[in-house]
Amino acid sequence: MKLIQPSENTIMDWRDVNAVDKIEYALKHGNYKTRQLAAEALEQIGRPSSIPILLNAMNDKIQKVSIAALNALEALGCNDDLVISITRKRFNWVKELRDKEENRKVKKDKKHNIYRWKRASKESFDRVKEQLKKPMR
Rank of each mutant, 00 (worst) to 15 (best):
L73E: 00
N31W: 04
C78A: 13
A26M: 02
L132E: 11
A68I: 10
K64G: 13
G77H: 03
D16G: 06
R104F: 09
R90G: 02
I51W: 03
Y32N: 13
R116N: 07
R88N: 12
G46R: 04
E102C: 06
E40M: 13
E101K: 05
R15P: 01
H112E: 15
T87V: 08
V128L: 15
F91L: 12
V20S: 07
E101Q: 09
F125S: 12
R104V: 04
D13G: 10
S50K: 02
R90E: 05
K64F: 13
I114Q: 07
F91K: 11
I53M: 08
Q131L: 15
E43I: 01
Y32Q: 12
E96N: 14
L132D: 12
R35D: 02
L76W: 00
H29M: 08
K22P: 01
I67S: 02
R90C: 04
I23H: 03
C78M: 03
E74R: 06
L27T: 02
K105D: 11
E130I: 04
D13A: 14
N56G: 10
N103A: 06
N56K: 15
M12K: 07
K129C: 07
A26D: 03
I53N: 02
N59F: 12
R98A: 10
I53P: 00
N71K: 12
E43K: 11
G46S: 03
G77N: 11
R35N: 04
K64P: 04
K133W: 12
R98V: 04
K134E: 06
L97H: 10
K64H: 15
A120G: 07
I84L: 09
L3K: 12
V20E: 06
I45S: 01
S49C: 06
R98P: 00
K133H: 14
N18R: 15
K89N: 13
L73T: 00
C78W: 02
N31R: 08
K33A: 10
Q5G: 01
E130A: 05
R35I: 03
D80Q: 07
V65R: 01
I23D: 00
L3M: 10
L3E: 13
V20F: 04
A75Q: 12
L3H: 09
K108R: 07
P48Y: 05
K28G: 05
A19K: 08
I84Y: 04
N31T: 08
L55I: 05
E123F: 06
L42K: 01
S49E: 14
Q131Y: 14
A120R: 13
N31Y: 06
Q36G: 05
I62S: 14
L132K: 15
R127F: 04
N92W: 11
K22S: 10
T34E: 02
F125M: 08
S7N: 05
N59H: 14
E96M: 11
S66I: 07
R15M: 09
L42M: 04
S124P: 00
I4A: 14
I84N: 03
D109R: 09
W14H: 05
K105L: 15
R116D: 11
S85P: 01
R127C: 01
F91S: 09
Q63T: 13
